[in-house]
Design a protein around this nucleic acid. Structure first.
Lengths: 229, 229
DNA sequence: CTGTGAAATTGCAATGGATGAAAGTAGACA
DNA sequence: TGTCTACTTTCATCCATTGCAATTTCACAG
């Protein structure tokens, strides 16, 4: 790979990171809308104009590490195991992506703590919410395309799109619903598992007699945590 | 309901409609970004400031009829038939909402033609895409809540959220994927039906031997249209 | 070293969306 | 007819975002 990054590159990386850190800190301390791009730039001692040569918008700083995570997921899909069912692959993508994220998505920052704070920030700022949803949408298209390529002749574009859409859709709504109720991480985690079960087994499974075994993930709580209805 | 709308109300309605029509027309003719709010306002002979007392943002004019459609869907959910399975209800919500939309979502406008042109506009303008996704997200939360209320004791918040998320997610991605390839309406329609089938039967159903009967909607083409993979 | 070209940064001006405040105007209503 | 109130208009201002031209800073060949 690239041997000598070169001063220029290093400097750019440093500036980028500084902008990210300053931005996230200021957003935390003073709020997103309250913080102006000028302030962020000033904090890093660059011109406002420079900020926009690093990020397309004020919102985008917050999602600085999205790309690497998506690429990771796409890689897993591209390397799908021969004969592996679509469900299995999607499950594996979810697992590994999470692991990758918790590990160290980019190359710095205390992933775990920051991740949570950032999620709160995103959920509480409409503009960020919108950006996140838009980003997620584009990601889904990429995933669907990757899935299609991984199963040539077996999965048509519509099926791939629907599969990704329902999987992501289920997890997204479940996760958000859980976080909204201030569920502790473990409970939210279980909510995600359950939503995956539902996606795997279909909407029909919701109408079968409750107490119906459906666990499809190793370690699933079994889909039975009757949260306060 | 309200008997005499009163001149004041009528005038307000008229202004609102005029703004919507002017905006959509200008967006069509000159493009979304190219059109300024000032131009729209000028076209209707009101101040720019007034525009913002009718719509929170430039984007929002485009989604003027979303509210009524959502309310319609929520009404269907609230009136769910006793003993009706969740899947059935969701299917029915989709059906009736579509019918309602084609009919006459608001009270004017040639629903069909406009609908398509508007979708194209939305899909081609990032800002509108983002707004649409954000709106859809909020809608999903409302639907999930409605669903939860419609099945007290039978559906916990997570299940309701996951159900709505996967259903909407599947349909959204399938529909968009189809439109992107310029599929004719009929084909797109079939794509939606197939995505519903997948959501109903679960991701597992994708890995079963192809040619597996799965039609769950009256008139479904059978989920077999092998679109050019 | 040193010149030179490419890449990055900066300053500056302008556009346009969005909001707050004060003042004006016109229906609603007694 | 004369308020009361809702809706508009003006006016001022903030701030994100972008284009442009000038300037600075590396990378690199000579």
């Amino acid at each position: 790979m690239g041997a000598a990054p070169g001063l220029r590159e290093r400097k750019k990386l440093r500036t980028r990171r500084a902008l990210i850190e300053a931005a996230l800190r200021l957003f935390q301390e003073n709020g997103f809308e309250e913080t102006t791009v000028a302030e962020i730039a000033a904090d890093v001692d660059v011109s406002t104009r420079t900020f926009f040569s690093y990020f397309a918008s004020k919102e985008d700083v917050v999602f600085f590490d999205t790309r690497s995570r998506v690429d990771h997921a796409l890689a897993v899909i591209a390397d799908r195991r021969p004969g592996e069912p679509v469900v299995e692959l999607l499950l594996r993508v979810a697992e590994t992506t999470l692991a990758f994220t918790l590990d160290d998505a980019d190359g710095s920052e205390p992933a775990l703590e920051m991740s949570s704070a950032r999620t709160n920030l995103i959920m509480s700022v409409p503009a960020l919410q919108a950006r996140a949803l838009h980003l997620l949408f584009d990601v889904q298209r990429e995933l669907a395309q990757g899935l299609r390529r991984a199963y040539p002749g077996e999965l048509d574009p519509i099926e791939a799109a629907a599969a990704v859409g329902m999987f992501v859709g289920a997890v997204k709504m479940a996760a958000i619903t859980s976080r909204e109720r201030d569920d502790p991480p473990m409970v939210t985690w279980d909510a995600v598992r359950r939503s995956v079960d539902i996606a795997v087994n279909g909407l029909r499974s919701l109408d079968r007699a409750p107490g119906d075994a459906a666990g499809s993930w190793p370690g699933s709580a079994g889909g039975q945590n009757a949260t306060k209805a």
